[in-house]
Design a protein around this nucleic acid. Structure first.
Lengths: 235, 235
DNA sequence: CTTTGTAATAGTGGATACACTCATACAGAA
DNA sequence: TTCTGTATGAGTGTATCCACTATTACAAAG
C-alpha cells in the first residue's frame, strides 16, 4: 500500500475530500486553479456544504489555500517551499527508519528487496507507476516505525509534492527512477546501524530536491502564483 | 511571541477555531470530553456551521477526534502518543536550529539570553507563565530558520502536548522549569557548529518526554480514552 | 483613449430546516 | 431478575436559503 487512504467514505464530506485530493494529486486540478464548490458539488451529486468542509481539511494539509471571501485555490508551491518540504521529510523519514530498525528481520528485508524489484520493473516499463511504487517503498519503511502520527505527516509531505513529481517524471528523460539509489537505503538498513540508516535516509530524501527544483526552474513553471499559507501557521 | 496565532479573526469560523483551540490548550475542555456544536455556537453567538468547520480544522491537527455520527471529542493522548510527539518534535526542532544557525549573529544571541532570563524569572515567580516563556524561546529559535511550514508543524506539536504540560507544571514540585537546561541549547548555538546544535536540541527536546510520562503515569490519568486518529492518516 | 464610478453577477459565509443515526430509557418476555 | 426489543429524544450530516462581498463589465466624465 502506498500513501492512499484506506477504507470507505463514511460520509459525503469524506467522499468529497477523497475525490478532490485525488484530482489534486493526479494533476487534474492545477496549482493556482480556483475550485468552485458548486461545480464540484454537482459533479459529486451532493450539496456545496460537504465540499466546503473538504476544502477545510485540504487547506489544513496545505494542499489548498482558502482566501476569505475570495475562494479556494489549489496551492502552488514555490521552489523554496518544495525544498522546505524535502528538508522536513528528510528528518522525519530519517527518524522513521531509525525507529523501524529493530523490526527489520529477515522477512522485512526480503520484503524490502521485493519493493526494490517492483520499483525497478516499473522504472523499466516506462515509469508510469514508478512514483506509486516509490511511495510504497517509503511507506513500507515508515510503517515499520509503528508511529501513526509520524507516518501520517510523512504521507502528507509525499502528497504535497506529488503533482510536481508527476510532471517531472512525465516530461523528463532521465528522472529519478533512473538515477535514484534506493538500494543505498536498503544497504544501510542491512548493516543494522540505526544512526547510519538514519543518515543515509536523510541524504536519500534530500537528493531529489535539487533535481526536481532544477527541472521546475527550467520550465519556469514551478511556482503557482498565490503563496500558500500553512493553515495552522503560528508564531 | 509564542505559538499563538496572530491577526484578527476574519470569519466566524476562524473565531470559533481560536476560541475552541484556546479552551483546549488551557484545559477548559478536558481530553475525552465531548464538544457539542450547538452549545459552543450559542456561547459564541453564531450558528453551528462555523463551529463544525472549526472542528474539522482541529481534527486535522489531531486536537479533536470526529467520530462520524457520534460527535466530536477532545482527543486524549496516550503516553505512547505523547512520546511520539516529542520524538517528532525533536527532529523538527533539530532541523530548525540547524537551518537557523547562519542567522545567529550577536543581536540574535543577545535576544536568546533575554529569553533565558525571562524564563528564569517566570520560573522563580512560581512558574505560572513559564510554559509560555518556554514556548517563546523555542519559537524564537525556530523562527530564525525562516521555514514557514516547519515552524507551523512545530507549533502544532507544542500545542498538542500543552494541556498535559500544563497539568504537570501545575501539580508538581520540581517541574521542567527547575531542571531543564535551556542554556545548553544556547551554549551549543554559540559554538557555531550546526551539527552540534542540532544534536543538542534533539536531546533537549527528548529529555522532557520521560519525565512528563512518568508524571502522567503516576496520576494514571494520561490517556484520554478514545484514541486519536491522526486525521489524514494514510498507508 | 484613459480613468473613474456604477451596475450586474458570480460566489462566499453563515443560518436555518430537515432527515437520519445513535443512545438511552423503559416495557415486556423469559 | 435479566435480557431483549422498542420508543423517544438528542445530536449529527446535508440541503437549501439568504445576505453580503468581490469582481467584472460597462458607461460617463475627463
Amino acid at each position: 500500500m502506498s500513501f492512499a487512504s484506506k477504507g470507505m467514505a463514511a460520509t459525503a464530506q469524506d467522499e468529497a475530500y477523497r475525490a478532490i485530493l485525488q484530482d489534486i494529486r493526479s494533476g487534474r486540478y492545477q496549482p493556482g486553479e480556483r475550485l468552485i464548490p458548486e461545480t464540484i458539488a454537482r459533479e459529486l451529486a451532493m450539496s456545496r456544504m460537504p465540499v466546503r468542509e473538504a476544502f477545510q481539511r485540504l487547506a489544513n494539509e496545505g494542499l489548498v489555500l482558502i482566501r476569505p471571501n475570495r475562494g479556494c485555490f489549489v496551492s502552488g508551491l514555490t521552489i523554496e517551499e518544495i525544498y522546505e518540504l524535502f528538508e522536513i521529510r528528510s528528518v522525519l523519514e530519517g527518524l522513521a527508519v531509525r525507529l523501524a530498525m529493530p523490526r527489520f528481520d529477515a522477512a522485512a528485508l526480503a520484503e524490502l528487496d521485493d519493493h526494490l524489484a517492483r520499483m525497478r520493473r516499473a522504472g523499466a516499463a516506462g515509469g508510469a507507476d514508478w512514483l506509486g511504487r516509490h511511495q510504497e517503498f517509503h511507506a513500507y519503511i515508515c510503517g515499520l516505525s509503528r508511529r501513526p502520527k509520524l507516518i501520517a505527516q510523512i504521507a502528507a509531505l509525499h502528497i504535497a509534492v506529488e503533482p510536481y513529481m508527476r510532471v517531472w517524471l512525465h516530461h523528463v528523460a532521465q528522472p529519478a527512477h533512473a538515477t535514484e539509489r534506493q538500494d543505498e537505503v536498503v544497504e544501510a538498513i542491512r548493516t543494522g546501524d540505526a544512526e547510519h540508516a538514519e543518515a543515509v535516509m536523510r541524504e536519500h530524501v534530500l537528493r531529489t530536491a535539487p533535481r526536481l527544483a532544477e527541472f521546475l526552474r527550467s520550465r519556469g513553471q514551478a511556482t503557482g502564483a498565490p503563496a500558500t499559507l500553512p493553515a495552522s501557521a503560528q508564531i
